[in-house]
Each structure stands twice: as structure tokens, then as C-alpha cells.
Write a protein that binds this DNA or RNA. Structure first.
Lengths: 165, 165
DNA sequence: ACTCCAAGTTCATTCAATGAACCATCAGGC
DNA sequence: GCCTGATGGTTCATTGAATGAACTTGGAGT
């Protein structure tokens, strides 16, 4: 399997997780699903991913119980929501070590407005912030994408609430 | 790029991170590097990865500053150590949702012996556990691999300390 | 029935993963 | 000096997935 989900001989929970979310594009699909993207065409517009690959990845994620399909919408499940710490940790790491400009997007506590700490807690409230209370805000490093979904996300947006295009 | 590091049009820290650590095998290499694996042949034995791919991945990680090569050893850098929250979060997620048997490996606080909570804190000491104080212990789900590195890791092992084969 | 559009499939091409075989370098031993 | 084995790679033919364009399907509205 060229890039795939097969770490068969690895006796390890990390490998098990990567069989589900370790393929190319998958983590970005989950990121967007956490943001509230739900429609096939919206994932397509934001990811620049071939339709065939998107179709296959969405199906895999549904099979794994990370997404749930209802009509033409893919919504993230509880299992999927529990990937938020992984996505957040990756974002902070990428930003800290490979962010050539200012952050493009900030994760804030909707209640008090403070930016989340690296460990996902709110520095103001001194407690972990549940995903539902996280608000996406555009950061100082202006994003350049101009597809409808990315444009919609230039406004502050509560995590998990469907993105309207 | 088939599976690769190219998420060029993604204006996002997650994508930036995945360009470095998102390719097949890379995260497992980092997992092992955090455990203390350092030699080419040891990664090879534990991962069942083609030599050519391992060689290329190690080089990429050195280029990105995640690993550091000294002689014939690849050691993890500070940048690499900061991926521990990502690896730990992935492991807990994989274990919770896709662990068909009992955990193969436990992450414990070397001081008090308690198992780390999902957020990386020690439930006994009620504080975050620095990577240096994390101890690997074999879990109740017996691992089946019998390469020298995996065998060595059946003993309790402090994170980052070189694995002796 | 007709139109439109989002969703998804098909397919030829490209490019990376795979695994076996080969090469390079170094450390002992003779 | 020269053999021998161990380690750390590189090379290369093959396989299979990613890509992107073209095509098909299915439902909503009129």
C-alpha cells in the first residue's frame, strides 16, 4: 500500500490512529469538519483536492465513525471531535516552528476572548476549553485564499457551527 | 506530489505542520525517536519500512530540524520533542476508539508511577509532566513484535534515553 | 418532462512506495 | 597489508495510489 493505512505489523495505538487519519489530506478534512465545513463542494473548494480522493477519504472517515453522513452533509461525530487536541497541537507546533509570517488563524475562548494556550486551556479562565466554546478568528497574517468557504471563515466563527456559503 | 509534503495552497499552520510530519511513516519515526531509538538499523527493525523510504524520511526530518544527525545516530531536537503532545494525543485517541485489545504501552509519570491523563498531566501530581519524566511501560495487551528494539522496550524505559540493543 | 446543479465515478497519466539487490565505509582479526 | 562482517546507505524495476479532466448520476425546482 503506497501511502496508505496499512501499518499492520505495528503494535501501537499511534499506528492504529494513523491508519484512520494518517493518509494524505485526511487531517485537513478533519480540520475543516471541526470548523463546520459539511458539504462535498465546500471541502473541494477549500482543499484543492481531486474529487476522487475527497470522495474516498470521506467514505473512509464515515466507515471509521469519524464523520456521519446525512443527506449530502458530512458532520463530525463525537469520535471526530476528540481529534481536536491533535489538530490544535499540530497547529501550534506548525505555527511556532514553521510559521514564516504571523498566524493566519487564532483559536480563542468564546467566553472571554482570550487566545487558547498551547495545551488547549484558556489562560484567563485557567481551565480547559471545550470544543464548543472555541471560536475561530482571523489572525494578523492575512490569508490569501478566496474560495467562498475561506471567505466566510474570515469572520469570527464558532467551532462546529455549519459554515454558510 | 502523490502523498507528499505539498499542501502549497493551504494557508494554515496545520498544513504547514503536515508538510513536515504528515507523510507516511514520518510520525512513527518520530514516535520511536521520542522513545530513544537512534540508529538506522533500529528504526528499520521496528518499522518494517523500506530502507530507501527510511533514508529519505530521516533526511527530511534532519533538514526540517526535527532530528539531528551525529555520526551514525539520529537524535531528536527540541523542535522534535515538542511533537510529544501530538503523538500522545494520537495514541490516546487511537487507543480509545480503535484499541481492540488492552493498551500495548502505557505512558506513566516516572516520579509517582501514575498513568498520564489524556491531556498529558499526571492525575496524582495534578500538573503537566515534562517529557523527560515520562516513562514507557508495557501494557496488559502483550505486544507481538520480536525485533531487538521492541524487546528492549518491554522493560520500563525513560523517554528520550537511548534504547540499547 | 426539462433544466440545473451538487455529488460522485471513470480513466489515462504521473509519481511515490516497495522490496530486492547492490555498493560504501569502517573495525577487527590475521 | 588484506580479508570479513556489520552498518548504513543507494539503485532500480515494479506496483499502486494521487492527480485532474471528462463524464455520469440523482435530486430539486418549474
Amino acid at each position: 500500500m503506497a501511502l496508505g493505512k496499512d501499518y499492520a505489523r505495528q503494535d501501537c495505538a499511534v499506528a492504529r490512529a494513523l491508519e484512520v487519519v494518517g493518509e494524505r489530506w485526511t487531517m485537513l478534512i478533519i480540520r475543516d469538519a471541526l470548523y463546520g465545513v459539511r458539504r462535498f463542494s465546500d471541502f473541494l473548494a477549500r482543499l484543492d483536492i481531486p474529487r476522487a480522493v475527497l470522495s474516498q477519504r470521506l467514505q473512509s472517515l464515515v466507515d471509521a465513525g469519524v464523520l456521519e453522513k446525512a443527506g449530502h452533509e458530512y458532520a463530525i461525530t463525537e469520535t471526530g471531535k476528540e481529534l481536536w487536541p491533535v489538530v490544535h497541537a499540530l497547529a501550534r507546533w506548525g505555527e511556532r516552528h514553521f510559521g514564516d509570517r504571523a498566524p493566519v488563524r487564532l483559536y480563542c475562548h468564546a467566553g472571554c476572548g482570550a487566545r487558547l494556550a498551547a495545551d488547549g486551556t484558556c489562560p484567563e479562565c485557567a481551565r480547559p476549553v471545550p470544543l464548543e466554546e472555541v471560536e475561530l478568528r482571523p489572525g494578523p497574517g492575512a490569508p490569501v485564499r478566496d474560495d467562498p468557504v475561506s471567505v466566510a471563515l474570515r469572520e469570527p466563527h464558532r467551532m462546529l457551527t455549519p459554515v454558510r456559503t
